[in-house]
Design a protein around this nucleic acid. Structure first.
Lengths: 252, 252
DNA sequence: CGTGTTTATCGTCAGGCAGACGACTATGAT
DNA sequence: ATCATAGTCGTCTGCCTGACGATAAACACG
């Protein structure tokens, strides 16, 4: 069945961002309120069109800066410059996903340390960090009693895929440190795992695992007291990116 | 920096396929020879434009049928109908990746059992299965003494990413069975792992691992003799898709 | 028809790692 | 001073893996 390749159908290409962070022991995602049709007034993932001279990763990094002020972590940079981790997630191109026109969205996943309140940008009326369960639950009510309408477009699916990617990836990589500030304690890192997985981990076994994996954590020498217990050693992320053997997620 | 969203820049969207199989103890990929500019005469990955009414997965499945005759394995279908496994790999959108125009390619990864000679289709002069090392080596000479020119466009990168995805995914999933016919022996499955990873595995430990993982393999009752040794039990892929604990790739 | 080769399959054993959990330390709150 | 909280170090047991011996069942050859 020949199909004329010279008359290629035009598409709009966008990037959408799943920006995750851990706030108050909960995995949260950045959501923006849509200011225009379709889905006006509904919450959505931040995103925008890819410009003619941009690579996909550049477009995602640009959107990330516009929405959060965070600079994406350059994969070539060795040290953690407090930037966010950014990686491509998946691409969504259902012909009916946007009622206006044919839009293919290249979703990206960003992991960021806890930030102050987001600043709204672009075409969004407002922006907020919301727990992912709240954004993904259908028809329930949010923390403020607000009707939790489903996310716009297929963004619930994209967010769900991004969360699952993050949950599985911290098993076998040191990516969980992307949720932490540049210096952090073992307990803070453990609470990241607990928030992302939604489980409770044994502090002793966790401590043994992360401190015993070479290259995962590098002690900075300092100690700190943040919540009234014994002071904890401070670490920064080591160079190792792969965790072998992996940190096993407890099965429910 | 406002950017007019109504004047979205038009893109061409294509799907490219990394179709992998195991032939003669080597991991091979499907390559087609380009019949037109640019990169005329060079080897490339099969692919084509996404049609206006197609989802991305549908477009990839259509290209797969056109190039190989293989029907994609419907994820909803429970049993293995001898179709190929097909999943989205990643999306490539460098502005300069195609000199003619702005093309965003959504690459897909397909894993297929060993097939007879491929049939050329579409705009390709010919098609063949080639060992991935041969396709990825730069400036060397292939098996027939033919100059191994690099793949067209950024297809070497795409193929490399697809191979790495396959190598890591068979660690923690039962995906390696997608390289096997519907009934196979433990030895055949082991040779799949050995070909994909390029290592030698201990037959006894491998046998213990795969037969000891519940849901991975289901004995069909039959036995077979294929290479002059003791007859082997025949299995088919069980319902389990996740391998926990994973099969560890030996670190070399 | 025995002998060697090949492949499949079962067992054994030691080391490593994870889960469960006890014990001790160092801070702040009362 | 006592308690609560959080961090850190150990111990023990069971499971899994890697290394490898041994047996089983076919074929290839003389």
């Amino acid at each position: 069945m020949p199909y004329d390749p010279s008359a290629f159908p035009p598409f709009a290409v966008t990037v959408d961002l799943v920006v995750l962070t851990v706030r108050r022991h909960a995995l949260c995602a950045l959501a923006v309120r849509r200011g225009e049709q379709p889905f006006q007034g509904r919450w959505a993932l931040p995103g925008g069109f890819v410009r003619p001279d941009e690579d996909l990763g550049q477009a995602a990094a640009r959107e990330l800066v516009e929405e959060t002020g965070l600079r994406a972590h350059d994969p070539s940079a060795p040290a953690q410059d407090n930037g966010a981790h950014l990686e491509q997630l998946a691409t969504y191109g259902d012909p009916k996903r946007d009622p206006r026109m044919r839009v293919v969205s290249v979703a990206h996943l960003a992991l960021a340390p806890d930030l102050p309140a987001p600043r709204a940008g672009g075409d969004a009326n407002s922006a907020r960090w919301a727990p992912v369960e709240e954004l993904l639950q259908q028809g329930g009510y949010g923390r403020d009693g607000e009707q939790a309408a489903p996310l716009a477009f297929d963004h619930a699916q994209i967010l769900s895929d991004g969360v699952e990617r993050a949950r599985s990836k911290i098993e076998y990589s040191s990516l969980a440190t992307a949720f932490c500030p540049s210096e952090f304690t073992v307990g803070e890192l453990r609470r990241v795992y607990e928030a992302v997985w939604g489980v409770a981990l044994d502090p002793r076994n966790f401590h043994r695992k992360v401190t015993g994996t070479p290259g995962f954590l590098v002690p900075t020498g300092g100690t700190t007291t943040r919540q009234g217990g014994r002071p904890a050693q401070l670490f920064r992320a080591g160079g190792a990116t792969l965790l072998n053997p992996p940190m096993l997620r407890p099965e429910v």
